[in-house]
Structures are given as structure tokens and as C-alpha cells.
Nucleic acid binder design. Structure first.
Length: 540
DNA sequence: CGGTTCGACTCAGAAATGTCACT
DNA sequence: AAGTGACATTTCTGAGTCGAACC
């Protein structure tokens, strides 16, 4: 399960330093059908890092205190572990066990005989070497480009490095490009497959092994291919306003339906329409914590409060959502929804583990929604509600607050709250903390020593205080290391994925706020289409 | 034909990196 | 004037959605 290398830097070949061409694709008439994504697509394929370089002679690996010379492959694998020696993961039993098993496979028989336990291995010299090397080298991480219909475009994610996965070779990679524009693989290698599929936008793909999931090399967010989709996404979300009344009317009727699946669909749709929940596909039941969305909610995730704090009919959500972020909130609901939920829970005998909505699933919902208007699916509601809310909040807040940027952030915060976008304040890294504690302990013992020496002499009061203070500091560090994580709102996700940029651009023009105050460089590139439209009167 | 898996995107917070004011 | 530390921005890649293929 080891990935020795994976794709990383892009060859500089195609990178020119000349001024960046701005392709105003949003001003052009569509030249081909929706289902065709490109006419020509040229790129160099993924770049592979150079082969492994052996450690210099002065850097040793020790087993049980003795120098052991590893064979090249075993050393390469060891270097992966050494590089993350001070990462919390190296304390994880399973991680170490897996690593050790895989590492042994890479060892020569002689080395294998010697190395019997991971905890007798001393990687510290190697770790120090790589830490030095990393800071010295300052690897130039230049992004690559590809050519779409003759225009230069950036490539998106440069896939992971240094993770424990299988080595990816050109033979594992499928290239997607124009005919006659096939990139050169590494000398002596060949691509696994080459295809010319203009119905998709990816440039290269490969299977990650494990877990066998497909990975893609995709265009950058600021490219035409991605921007176009983004624009389209907001257009669909915008159109929902013409259908929302009808949808609401319909689901209110469905609450009274004799048909269980209609009745449940009605309630689920209400929850999605009111509280911007995700649809909730089935998630893989592995060792990972199960997460939930609207359709997959269990009985225990919803608590009904008949009379909560003097108000009536409140619903309490409490479940793990996407990325294991806790969704916990108390919301008012309409009488009939309340009664229906009560019924659904009773039907399952209040068994907490039972599925609350056992007669609907995401496919059923989307099939229904697609029938109402083209492109409508459940996730559109989140986009729609977020954008509508932003527009409304901006209208309400901007007049009252002198600082326009703060009022913007305030509106943004409301949307983030709605979408339950959280951010975990990172606790001090385990290792860094250990180092700090270690240093602190050294200081303390030094002070103690000084104190002892001074005992013979006179003025020891100051030194005594010093010892006491340092002792307290050390104790404090110990407490902080077990500090509980504290959750805060994260405004970035909603800004990047849910709020129509044209709303923001219009607001900027109206209040004379430079777009630069709101969007970062990368964000301005991503939303170039919206910024260039420059429509002050835009209404979502 | 209903459920499950697969392929292709789309969204997610954390980690890594950059910046800037202050020593 | 190089370090440092708080905060901002960018990168990374896992975790969702959803239509289509498969069975």
C-alpha cells in the first residue's frame, strides 16, 4: 500500500512567462453543442518525479542502536516514514503496523532478517536530513497548462505527493486529448490508454490502488471548461425561483397523501427547501464513521419538541454530515410536518437506528425534480437558498453598517451558518507541542540546578520564583495539549461554491467597493466571467 | 425494473505556504 | 535586519452528488 511517487510538478516546457492571455470565453457565442466539451485538447500528460536518490553516506539508519545499510528500495520506503516521523500518524498503531508490513516487502532478505520491530528503528538522522533538504531546495511548483481549442489554460490539482499508496506509472494512466496531439510518456514507458473523448473534460485519469477509486487530472477552476459549468450551475439555481411556489404547493399536498412514498417525499423536500440539507446518498460503510444527509437520516437524528421554551413544534437535528461535520440545530416546523415526522418515528417503534425515510431515496427525488425543470436536482436548492440569502442579507445589512466590507462578511456569515460550513481551530501539533514541552522541561531543570548552586549563597528568592514560574508553564502546556477542539464558521466554502458571484459583483459596483477587497486573486480568476460582465443591476 | 456499482464531476476543511507588522 | 507569530491565501485530496451502466 505504498505510493512512492505520484504526479507532481509540471514540465516547464509549455509555461511561458509572457503576460497572461485573458480568454473572454464568456463573450463568445457557443461554437458547439453542450454535450461536446472541446474541439481540440493538447497537453503533456502528468509529470513524474525523478527516480529515488540514495541517501548520502553520512546519513545513517540505525536498528537497535546499530548502523544498518538498507537496500535501495527499503531505503526509499523508509524515507517516506522518516519524512513524517514527527507526524501524529506515526503514533497510530494501525498505521505503523501497515507500514511495517509493506516496508518488509521492500527489504532484501538480509535486511529483513535484522529488522524485526518498528520501534527499534531509528529514523531520526534521515528525518533531520529530509527536513534540511526540503527547506534548502525550495522546489519550484509551476503549474502546467493545456490548450483548449487553441487557447492556453491552466491545469487544476497536481495530485498528492508522499502519501502511502501504490506507485503510479505511465502504464497506469489514461490520457484524454486530441488525436495527433498525444503527449510523450517517459522514455521507455507508454501510456496505459489514450482516448479522444470530447464529451468529458479531464486530461488524464488513473486508478488509485487502494482503494481503486478513479482519480482525474482536471482543468483549473479559472479555465473555460470549469467556469462555464459554474456559470451554468448558477443559472439553474436562479431558475428555481420560478418553480419554488409550485414545488411548495405540491409538497404540502403530499403531506396528506395515502401513498407513503409521496408523503415522505413531501416531508424530505420540505426539509431540503427550508433548511438547505444535502440529499444524503448512501455512504460506504467501512471503518469510517458513517455520515448522513436528508434521505439517509435515522430516527435518532431527529428529536421532536412539542413545546420548546414556550414555542411550539420544533425539530432538533443532530447528525454527522459531510466530512464528519456535526449538524446540530433546532428549527421550527409546520404542524403537518411535525405530525408526519412523529408518525414516521412511531412506525419504526422509535428504534433509533432505523431509517426515518424508508420509502424515498435520492434517485426518486431527483427524478421528480428533473421532471419539473431541466437540470433541477436536490443540490440546486442549497445553491439557490444560499444565493437568495446572500442577496437579501446584503440588501438588509449594507445600509446600517458603515464599513461595507464588514457588512459583507456579516451577510457571508449568515450563509455559512445556513450551509453549516465549519472550521476547526487546529490544536497545536502534537510533535511541536512535545518539542515545546521538552524545551520547557530542560529550562526548568537548568533553573533548578542554578537554584541549587545558589542555595549556598544568599539571594535565592528570585531564582525560586523562576523555578516556580517555569514549573507552572510546563503544567500549562500539558493542559493545552488535551485542549478540546473548538469549532467556528468557515466563510470560504459558501463564497466559493454557493453564492452567485454576480450578486457580489453587483454589490461591489453599487457600493463602490473594489472587488479585490472581497475576492482574492485566485477567486477573481475563478469568477472572471462574472467580474467582466460587470452588471450593476444583476438580480439573482 | 429496482437496486448497486461506476464514472465524472462538485464541494469540503485541513495542511501548506505566503504576507506583513512588529520586534 | 532576521526572526516570529498572527492571519490570509493557496493547495491538497477526501467526501459528496448524480446520471448511466450493469446485473
Amino acid at each position: 500500500l505504498l505510493l512512492l511517487w505520484t504526479f507532481c510538478e509540471w514540465p516547464e516546457l509549455l509555461v511561458s512567462n509572457s503576460q497572461r492571455e485573458i480568454w473572454k470565453w464568456w463573450e463568445e457565442e457557443p461554437k458547439y453543442e453542450d454535450s461536446i466539451k472541446w474541439m481540440s485538447l493538447r497537453h503533456n500528460g502528468p509529470a513524474f518525479p525523478p527516480p529515488y536518490e540514495r541517501l548520502p553516506d553520512n546519513i545513517k539508519f540505525y536498528y537497535n542502536g546499530e548502523i544498518v545499510t538498507l537496500n535501495s528500495e527499503a531505503e526509499e520506503v523508509a524515507s517516506l516514514y522518516a519524512k513524517m516521523l514527527y507526524h501524529e500518524l506515526t503514533r497510530d498503531e494501525t498505521f505503523c503496523k501497515n507500514f511495517f508490513t509493506d516496508w518488509k516487502d521492500a527489504m532484501s532478505p538480509e535486511v529483513k532478517d535484522v529488522i524485526a520491530a518498528l520501534d527499534q528503528c531509528d529514523f531520526r538522522e534521515m528525518a533531520a536530513y529530509y527536513k534540511r533538504k526540503k527547506t534548502n531546495e525550495k522546489v519550484q511548483q509551476e503549474f502546467g497548462y493545456f490548450f483548449l481549442d487553441g487557447h492556453k489554460q491552466r491545469i487544476g490539482n497536481s495530485p498528492s505527493r508522499g502519501k502511502l499508496k501504490k506507485k503510479i506509472l505511465p502504464e497506469d494512466v489514461t490520457i484524454n486529448c486530441s488525436e495527433k496531439e498525444i503527449p510523450e510518456p517517459l522514455p521507455g514507458c507508454s501510456w496505459g490508454q489514450v482516448q479522444h473523448n470530447s464529451a468529458v473534460i479531464w486530461l488524464a485519469s488513473w486508478k488509485e490502488s487502494p482503494p481503486g477509486k478513479l482519480k482525474y487530472m482536471m482543468p483549473h477552476a479559472n479555465s473555460k471548461l470549469m467556469g462555464e459549468r459554474d456559470w451554468k450551475k448558477y443559472e439553474v439555481a436562479r431558475r428555481l425561483k420560478h418553480h419554488r411556489d409550485h414545488i411548495q404547493e405540491q409538497y404540502r399536498k403530499d403531506w396528506d397523501s395515502e401513498d407513503k412514498s409521496l408523503q415522505q417525499r413531501g416531508v424530505v423536500l420540505y426539509l431540503i427547501d427550508k433548511f438547505a440539507l444535502r440529499v444524503g446518498n448512501k455512504t460506504k460503510e467501512g471503518m469510517m464513521a458513517n455520515t448522513f444527509g436528508c434521505c439517509s437520516l435515522r430516527v435518532k437524528h431527529v428529536t421532536l419538541h412539542e413545546d420548546h421554551k414556550g414555542e411550539t413544534k420544533k425539530l432538533e437535528f443532530n447528525f454527522m454530515g459531510k466530512s464528519s461535520i456535526l449538524d446540530k440545530k433546532m428549527v421550527p416546523v409546520e404542524e403537518k410536518v411535525f405530525r408526519n415526522l412523529q408518525l414516521f418515528k412511531e412506525e419504526k417503534g422509535e428504534r433509533g437506528e432505523a431509517d426515518l425515510f424508508d420509502h424515498v431515496n435520492p434517485q426518486v427525488l431527483n427524478t421528480y425534480l428533473k421532471g419539473l425543470t431541466k437540470g433541477l436536482t436536490t443540490k440546486v436548492f442549497r445553491t439557490h437558498i444560499a444565493s437568495i440569502t446572500m442577496e437579501q442579507e446584503l440588501k438588509n445589512l449594507t445600509h446600517h453598517i458603515k464599513d461595507k466590507v464588514s457588512s459583507f462578511n456579516e451577510a457571508n456569515r449568515k450563509v455559512a451558518e445556513l450551509c453549516n460550513h465549519q472550521r476547526t481551530k487546529p490544536a497545536l501539533h502534537w510533535f511541536e507541542l512535545q518539542v515545546t514541552i521538552e524545551a520547557s522541561r530542560d529550562e526548568l531543570s537548568l533553573s533548578k540546578k542554578k537554584l541549587e548552586q545558589a542555595m549556598q549563597g544568599s539571594s535565592t528568592e528570585e531564582l525560586k520564583n523562576d523555578v516556580k514560574r517555569k514549573d507552572d508553564e510546563l503544567r500549562e502546556l500539558g493542559v493545552n495539549s488535551s485542549m478540546e477542539e473548538n469549532k467556528q464558521l468557515n466563510l470560504n466554502s459558501s463564497k466559493l461554491y454557493y453564492i452567485d458571484p454576480r450578486i457580489i459583483v453587483a454589490w461591489c459596483i453599487k457600493w463602490g467597493v473594489p472587488v479585490e477587497k472581497i475576492y482574492t486573486k485566485a477567486q477573481r480568476d475563478k469568477f472572471a466571467w462574472a467580474i467582466h460582465m460587470n452588471d450593476e443591476n444583476f438580480e439573482f
